[in-house]
Design a protein around this nucleic acid. Structure first.
Lengths: 226, 226
DNA sequence: TGTACATCAGTGAACGCGCGTTCACTGATGTAC
DNA sequence: TGTACATCAGTGAACGCGCGTTCACTGATGTAC
């Protein structure tokens, strides 16, 4: 899409509280991110380049500095959006009354939709990089959804060393009233699904020959006290 | 016993009976890799740079081309070494008679020793990169060790859809005579431990407050028919 | 309503950087007679 | 044993590249009177 066309589209949009310039800004920002995701999907997050995005959009490199303070801000924004998207996805499914299995399928669908987006959230960390604080909030939101789904299950689960440990270390639950067994179940749900999913997304199953869907389903059936 | 031991012996033989120049060569190659690992641990694999390594060793950049055809060959070699190290670690523990829990602890220790090395094997894949074929062999070796450990357990496990599916899709087991339930158990062992481990290594537990050791132990206790 | 001014998107040139990689060359080490 | 030659490690200059980022500037768009 070339520059004039974008401007024309922004002008054509009506009935918004925003000024045309503001609408144009958000639109360009969105397209920059769009191209960024494409680039990440193609060559990985470490290959993301502002200049390449600009070229792809038919603009010069420095133009993007009107929209992002720099490469780091763009990446941070993408990570934030990824978390946000996951939290929304899982939150919507939960609000629609899904059980744990429903959450699991939603999570898997979200991951398969864009594997590199999943890895931006749960993949190999870059040593030294620390995500901004507000992302912790979104992360807690996701956890809260899991806890909601786990709380009604098996309230009389037996105590174990880890569960009693969790009674004293439940800060991460952010005040959620889930019993220790539910906390444990949420953690297990999270880590086990991440285990299957990340290996599947990384392609470790492709050469092995079995059906990832069936394996995922089997792992779901084994979730404790589903 | 298995193929791995003979290969290890062959490698040990190869290190013998070398001319001084050959010994020097292997020594420099080893130091290059050493620095490479340090660099990866510090800034991640995508930041690995031949010139930086050379500078760190007090040589000029082009000197390294005596030892490696280029950056790609070095990275491939590092990945191979990582797989090799994991296969040897897990193979040695198995040869010493460890059970599944023993394997799990060895795996975790190996991962914690150098998280970025773990991620080089099981972390975010770089789109487009394909590991050379001989790595598949090492990967199979690791799987074989897991299968060895899983085979004697619960030979009369009930059939499930996935287990019957595995009966027809067991090529990845490389002719290993494990029954379907053992194949399933090996896969589950692998993915579940990867789930806990990779999230721990990526630092997702640190802000949560609970003790990763206890969680790992709890996950081990939940392994089916341990 | 038209005019004057302010705002802002986008450009092109430029800077400095570090990268991977090649090449012709020097000097040291090993080898054969 | 010493001498002549071959091998090989390492250097420094150089190439081309793409990156992030800054800067002064042009033109278009919005705003106030």
């Amino acid at each position: 899409m070339w520059v004039g066309e974008r401007q024309a589209m922004a002008r054509a949009e009506k009935a918004d509280a925003k000024t045309p310039r503001e609408r144009y800004r958000t639109q360009v920002r969105a397209e920059v991110k769009e191209r960024a995701w494409e680039q990440i999907a193609t060559a990985g997050a470490s290959a993301l380049s502002l200049n390449a995005i600009a070229k792809q959009m038919g603009m010069s490199g420095p133009a993007l500095y009107r929209y992002f303070a720099g490469r780091d801000e763009l990446i941070t924004e993408l990570i934030r959006d990824a978390y946000r998207s996951l939290a929304d996805t899982v939150g919507a499914v939960s609000a629609a009354g899904a059980d744990l299995a429903g959450l699991a399928h939603a999570l898997r669908a979200w991951a398969l939709e864009d594997p590199q987006r999943y890895f931006l959230v749960y993949g190999t960390p870059v040593p030294g990089y620390h995500a901004p604080d507000d992302i912790t909030g979104i992360s807690n939101e996701i956890m809260a959804t899991l806890l909601d789904a786990c709380t009604p299950l098996a309230p009389d689960a037996p105590a174990t060393p880890f569960r009693t440990h969790l009674e004293d270390h439940r800060a991460w639950a952010g005040g959620h009233p889930a019993p220790p067994a539910a906390l444990h179940r949420a953690l297990t749900f999270w880590t086990r699904l991440h285990g299957v999913l990340s290996l599947e997304l990384a392609g470790h199953f492709t050469a092995m020959g079995f059906d990832p869907d069936l394996f995922f389903e089997a792992e779901l059936d084994d979730l404790p006290a589903r």
